[in-house]
């Protein structure tokens, strides 16, 4: 996995799934998002930031994925996603705030695994 650390990737996966489920649950329960959602998004953000630093160090050390520009784009994007998701859902006064956060968490999940793939697969 190169600098896409397995522990960090699986941590991000687990937290993203929890945040997505919590978000969908609050929509189904006709409730707004609460502290649990925000805490989950914060943990996810921390894991992503650590992963970004690890990948950044590897890149600075001369390691290169096949498509460096795309990899960097995903790396920058994935770090912004939970923040954007929280901001966009916090301004939603209805039960749909949870679904907004769930979308952000699921897209984060996809992007993390795309990063793994981008580093591993030649010419992916």
């Amino acid at each position: 996995m190169g600098p896409m650390n397995a522990t960090l990737v699986w941590s991000a996966t687990a937290v993203a799934v929890v945040v997505a489920l919590a978000g969908l649950a609050s929509t189904l329960a006709h409730r707004r998002i609460g502290l649990l959602h925000l805490a989950g998004a914060a943990v996810l953000e921390v894991v992503l930031l650590v992963q970004a630093v690890v990948a950044g160090v590897a890149l600075a050390g001369g390691e290169r994925p096949p498509e460096t520009a795309t990899f960097l784009g995903y790396l920058a994007g994935v770090v912004l996603l939970p923040v954007a998701g929280v901001l966009w859902s916090r301004t939603e006064p209805s039960r749909w705030a949870g679904t907004v956060l769930a979308v952000a968490a699921l897209v984060t999940l996809v992007m993390v695994w795309r990063l793994v793939q981008l580093w591993e697969a030649p010419g992916a």
Partner: peptide, 13 residues
């Protein structure tokens, strides 16, 4: 607003 906010999020992605 409401479900529309979810739609905007997906469109933005």
């Amino acid at each position: 607003t409401g479900p529309g906010r979810v739609l905007v999020a997906v469109y933005a992605v």
